[in-house]
């Protein structure tokens, strides 16, 4: 028994060093990525079992509605569908006009983005609360860094892609920044997760920047990661500290990150990273 207790610390040390090595390799280098994505297939049965209570609950409680409610829901959906269809028709006309205008200023035409539907899997305690799991993986062509959109705006980007599941980091994570512009005046800046609750912060707006409450940030498409034009957030608070060089701007994300379930993973059309701005056609940004 005594000798066993002596052996423990050496094994502890060895395994400890191995763990440290793994953590370093996984977080700083890409060497483990292939291994991870194959090994993560093991987690599939666990996810299936773990999400079954939620599915069951929703099946029994939430989704059993009576006929009256269903019919009302259906009518609401029909109305929404009609409105959306009419706006889509306008969108087609606008896109055509946009392409013609781009032609005139010799900018390349936009190629539409391709999207893949995915569903957020409700699994587990999420240590940092800023990542979600999606039921698409490298088997569907998902890649690390791929942008993910929800019905109302940008949700985040893929940070780890397993074979059938991927982990998406939400825009509210403070280590992620998205290049955006204000919809009203085109002012470009970068938005980060603020680390406070579910808010975003835009830390690089100068004291004299033209930004107001309720302004909307949309993706600017710079840096090529996120396609341009998708809503990111709405300004909720601006603090002007006379001693600070930058404003303290907080924004509420456009996508309802807490309740989103269906998402879209986007492959960008080739020329989407160019921001069409007549004053600066000379500085077209190459990916």
């Amino acid at each position: 028994m005594k000798s066993k207790l002596l052996v423990l610390p050496t094994r502890l040390l060895l395994l400890g060093i191995l763990s440290a090595g793994l953590m370093f390799a996984d977080s700083r280098t890409d060497s483990l990525r292939q291994v991870r994505s194959f090994v993560s297939v093991i987690s599939l049965p666990v996810h299936v079992v773990a999400s079954s209570p939620a599915l069951f609950y929703r099946w029994v409680g939430g989704d059993l509605e009576d006929w009256g409610q269903l019919r009302r829901k259906y009518e609401d959906l029909q109305h929404q569908h009609l409105i959306l269809q009419s706006r889509l028709q306008q969108l087609d006309a606008l896109q055509f006009e946009n392409d013609r205008l781009r032609d005139i200023i010799s900018s390349a035409a936009r190629i539409p983005n391709e999207g893949l539907f995915g569903r957020i899997i409700e699994v587990g305690p999420d240590l940092y609360d800023r990542t979600v799991l999606v039921n698409r993986g490298t088997a569907d062509g998902v890649y690390v860094g791929q942008p993910v959109l929800g019905p109302n705006g940008v949700i985040g980007q893929v940070i780890r892609a397993g074979l059938f599941r991927s982990s998406v980091m939400l825009i509210t994570d403070s280590s992620q920044g998205i290049p955006v512009q204000l919809m009203r005046n085109g002012l470009r800046t970068i938005v980060y997760g603020s680390g406070q609750g579910d808010l975003l912060s835009a830390p690089y707006l100068g004291r004299t920047a033209d930004v107001r409450k309720d302004d909307i940030f949309i993706t600017s498409g710079l840096a090529g990661r996120f396609p341009a034009g998708y809503p990111v957030g709405r300004v909720t608070k601006i603090e002007r500290d006379p001693n600070a060089p930058f404003l303290d701007v907080l924004a509420q994300p456009s996508a309802s990150l807490g309740s989103v379930r269906e998402v879209l993973l986007i492959w960008q059309g080739a020329d989407d990273s160019r921001v069409s701005d007549p004053a600066t056609t000379s500085e077209s940004i190459d990916r």
């Binding site: 395994l15 400890g16 440290a20 793994l22 953590m23 996984d26 093991i42």
Partner: peptide
Amino acid sequence: SLGSAWLTGLLLDVVSFGVLGRYAL
């Protein structure tokens, strides 16, 4: 054993999609 605890932690790392080695340690 320490080894099986380490492996269990590693498995949890895989299932949780986190950095490998964190739960193992």
